[in-house]
């Protein structure tokens, strides 16, 4: 199966200066990331704050330029796009972001919010046709037709997220980039939005790039999962592999934090500054089973079995050892 979205050795480096006169240093926000997302599937990116999730999403959305690497969408390399092509391509990809409130302008009526992209892209010529499309979209996301006349500030977080999803669907996109779509919502509302997203994916054949720090959300939604740490993958595999046969100590720690009865050793400390990533294995400063070798030698992202990549020198034995550590 050919991938709808294909990302190759993607990198993003930000020059940041400390203080007024400091020489700019390079911050490697994304340090060489590759993955494929077949049409109709969900790729889940999981990692803690600052691991580079949003930076990857922005580059995929062409909202930010990669420092290097390639992004191929539906067979077309987006780096080669001119202005017109980029505008047309934007229809294929739509973002749904964490905070439905800031994503929607509070003083714009819901029907205007949803049909704005239709007006910008001049998809439907008549007002009546647009109104019909809006009604269809509201229904698709489970909102009553009367919601069209309301304003976001009169709605709950879950309803606002439905409006944001309706707007994202307006131009019949093929890929939704979902950056923490439920993390601002309460548990009972989260489940509603997650079910809705899965329904829409089945019905419309959508491809999802899903970003979340919550492994349970990632596990529920994803086909394939990539675990990010300091801008690089430490483990990539099918959802089943990641949830039941993870080998990287960082993945094991994330799993332990989501399963009350798991007994992996907790990781110590916090994520180091991406301005000065640790030598050797970037995780060694927090890893419960690190050795001297880890401090010197960078572990490559190697294949442990088909469709399972792990960047750890000791991937074969970590499951046993983190438990005893």
């Amino acid at each position: 199966m050919s991938a709808f979205l294909s990302v190759r050795d993607l990198r993003k480096t930000f020059p940041v200066s400390r203080g007024l006169f400091g020489k700019p240093e390079l911050l490697h926000a994304v340090a060489g990331v590759s993955f494929d997302v077949p049409a109709g599937t969900t790729f889940g990116l999981v990692g803690e704050s600052g691991s580079g999730k949003t930076t990857i999403a922005k580059m995929v959305m062409a909202a930010d330029e990669p420092t290097s690497g390639g992004i191929v969408i539906d067979g077309s390399d987006i780096a080669t796009h001119g202005k017109a092509e980029r505008f047309a391509f934007r229809r294929l990809l739509q973002p749904v972001l964490q905070d439905p409130y800031s994503a929607l302008s509070p003083r714009m009526r819901v029907d205007r919010i949803i049909d704005e992209p239709l007006r910008i892209h001049r998809t439907y010529s008549s007002k009546a046709a647009r109104a019909e499309r809006v009604a269809y979209l509201l229904d698709a996301v489970g909102l009553p037709a009367s919601a069209a006349q309301r304003y976001p500030n009169e709605m709950s977080g879950g309803q606002r997220q439905r409006v944001a999803i309706a707007r994202a669907l307006a131009l019949e996109p093929r890929l939704l980039v979902l950056d923490e779509p439920v993390s601002a919502l309460d548990v009972s509302i989260q489940a509603q939005i997650l079910n809705l997203l899965r329904d829409l994916q089945d019905r419309l054949g959508l491809t999802f790039l899903l970003i979340s720090h919550d492994l349970a959300v990632i596990g529920f939604m994803s086909t394939q999962v990539g675990v990010l740490y300091l801008g690089r993958f430490v483990e990539v595999g099918s959802k089943e592999t990641i949830l039941s046969d993870a080998r990287h100590p960082y993945t094991l720690a994330l799993i332990a934090s989501a399963v009350p009865e798991a007994d992996a050793a907790p990781v110590t400390g916090e994520i180091p500054s991406p301005l000065s990533p640790p030598s050797g294995c970037v995780f060694h400063t927090r890893c419960p089973v690190a050795t001297d070798r880890c401090r010197q030698e960078v572990p490559s992202l190697r294949q442990l079995k088909p469709n399972h990549l792990v960047a750890c020198h000791f991937a074969e034995t970590t499951r046993k050892e983190t438990r005893n550590a």
Partner: peptide, 23 residues
């Protein structure tokens, strides 16, 4: 309802059993 709506790691369900509506 809350306990059931919580996605479980490794759960294989297609849809989460949810509480309809909002508070």
């Amino acid at each position: 309802g809350l306990l059931r709506a919580l996605p479980q790691l490794g759960g294989q369900e297609d849809r989460l059993p949810l509480i309809p509506g909002q508070p």
